Amino acid sequence: MAGIGDGWMSRAFSALALKRWSEAARMAETADLRQLRRQRSVARRLKDRLDRLIQVADGRLALPVLGNQSFPRPHDADWAWRPELWCGPLAVAGMSSVQSQSRLGREVTLFHDCAHSEITLRQLRNTREADLAAYGLRLDVFKFDGSYLSLAIDLPEASCDGLKRKHLIRIDTIVEMEKPLEIFARLNIRHGPNTEQIVRELPLHEEEIRVEFDLAYTKLNEKRVDRMWLDLIFEGPEMNQVILRDLTFSRRPRAEM
């Protein structure tokens, strides 16, 4: 067994520690209770540190790089962003029997109207060299007795700074699914008491899954914009698994005529 440091002494200590813990585990069924209680206390402290080491090592050693905000974007984009779920590990990696309005991380919320939830959400590590995002999101739906299922992604305040009706908002994503379904993207922009909504269907049959929202067709009050979010709406999700390998946003001004 290799040691945690360099040199033969480190390897020897590591091998001895592993041997002792292996023996303690083997004898746990018959060990004296006072001794077992002490071992459990030490093992828990050790486990906390090992879990932390494994978490950090997995994040640093696997591809792609954590926190990566690099992705293709229009050359004239004045804002671009990848949500945290696709950038780095969340404190809670997943949920099962997910209830409506459950949040995964700070920016992603699941909505549905199922009487009994058979839905799971899980962050997973992307390891393909082709993936620029460090993580992806897996949505598993088994029996589905509701009428709607959607993921809401809250955009940061920077997305609203200087937002004009001349802007185009673009989203790019990589989607994998077990069987075909329809996914709609609805951009919501709140300005004062009103909310503008633009809906586009994701072109899942195309190689590049990309949609743009043209704000020129809205009644946006540019002086009162204070929040923006995206809803991904899944049609007919029952007995399906959908993986969003990446999700990115960018904003650019429309070319002047």
Rank of each mutant, 00 (worst) to 15 (best):
Arg186Asp: 05
Trp21Phe: 14
Glu235Thr: 13
Val98Pro: 01
Arg45Thr: 09
Phe234Val: 00
Arg82Asn: 09
Gln35Phe: 10
Arg138Phe: 03
Gln123Leu: 05
Leu187His: 03
Ile54Gln: 00
Ile4Asn: 15
Leu63Arg: 10
Ile169Leu: 15
Leu244Tyr: 12
Leu232Ile: 08
Phe184Arg: 11
Phe144Ala: 09
Ile183Gln: 06
Thr173Asn: 08
Gly94Trp: 04
Glu201Thr: 12
Val98Gln: 06
Ser14Met: 12
Glu212His: 12
Ala31Asp: 12
Arg170Ser: 11
Asp58Phe: 02
Glu238Asp: 10
Arg186Lys: 11
Ala93Phe: 02
Ser250Asn: 07
Glu196Asn: 01
Trp81Ala: 03
Lys179Ser: 14
Leu36Tyr: 01
Ala25Pro: 00
Ser159Trp: 06
Arg34Phe: 06
Ala216Trp: 04
Arg224Asn: 13
Glu235Val: 15
Phe71Pro: 04
Arg11His: 07
Leu155Phe: 11
Phe71Thr: 10
Gly162His: 11
Pro180Trp: 11
Arg60Trp: 02
His116Trp: 03
Asp161Pro: 02
Gln69Glu: 14
Val92Leu: 08
Glu201Trp: 08
Arg20Lys: 15
Thr127Pro: 03
Met1Glu: 12
Pro237Cys: 02
Asp113Phe: 02
Ser41Arg: 07
Trp229Thr: 03
Gly7Cys: 01
Leu215Pro: 01
His205Arg: 11
Ala158Glu: 15
Glu222Gln: 10
Arg125Gln: 15
Arg200Tyr: 00
Leu149Gly: 04
Ile153Glu: 03
Leu36Ile: 03
Pro253Gly: 00
Gly146Val: 12
Glu196Ser: 14
Ala255Ile: 07
Arg165Cys: 09
Leu220Ala: 02
Arg252Thr: 10
Arg40Ser: 10
Leu63Asp: 10
Glu238Pro: 00
Glu206Gln: 14
Lys143Gln: 14
Arg44His: 09
Leu202Gly: 07
Ser14Ala: 15
Arg224Ile: 02
Tyr148Glu: 06
Ser96Phe: 01
Ile169Gln: 07
Arg52Gln: 14
Met27Trp: 10
Ser97Val: 08
Leu46Tyr: 08
Asp246Asn: 13
Phe234Met: 07
Asp154Gln: 13
Ala91Cys: 08
Ser117Ile: 05
Arg45Glu: 12
Met177Phe: 11
Arg103Thr: 14
His112Trp: 07
Gln241Lys: 09
Glu201Cys: 12
Lys223Gln: 13
Ala91Gln: 13
Asp76His: 00
Arg165Glu: 08
Asp58Gly: 09
Ser96Gln: 13
Met228Glu: 08
Pro72Asn: 07
Ile171Glu: 11
Arg60Thr: 02
Asp6Pro: 04
